[in-house]
């Protein structure tokens, strides 16, 4: 199996992530979709790292994982703060700021 198949796989995962962000209304699922996008990037980086035979991509992957974890922590904190006000995690109901 060629390594290029992994690139197709990662692009499919990334697209699914984008669709998830656009379509799903639950904040938690949106967060998971963002995670999906970041993991598609990780897969991409590792494949390219293997292709080029250097470790730069793998090092970057470690950074991306770290950042993704931190980002999720911040995101969940914001979601909790909203949930305390509105008792909902539905994005459509968070709409007092517009135009």
């Amino acid at each position: 199996m060629s390594l290029y198949n992994f690139l197709y796989l990662s692009s499919i995962i990334f697209t699914l992530g984008v669709i998830g962000v656009l379509v799903r209304r639950n904040v938690l699922i949106v967060l998971m979709s963002i995670e999906l996008m970041l993991n598609a990037v990780n897969l991409n980086l590792i494949v390219f790292s293997k292709l080029w035979g250097n470790v730069v991509g793998q090092v970057f992957t470690v950074f991306v994982i770290t950042v993704a974890a931190a980002e999720t922590a911040v995101g969940l904190a914001i979601v909790v703060a909203i949930y305390r006000h509105k008792d909902t995690v539905n994005i459509d109901e968070v709409n007092i700021l517009k135009w």
Partner: peptide
């Protein structure tokens, strides 16, 4: 809160 959530989701994407 809402502004943080909006900034966070769009920033994350």
């Amino acid at each position: 809160n809402e502004s943080a959530l909006k900034y966070f989701i769009l920033g994350g994407v």
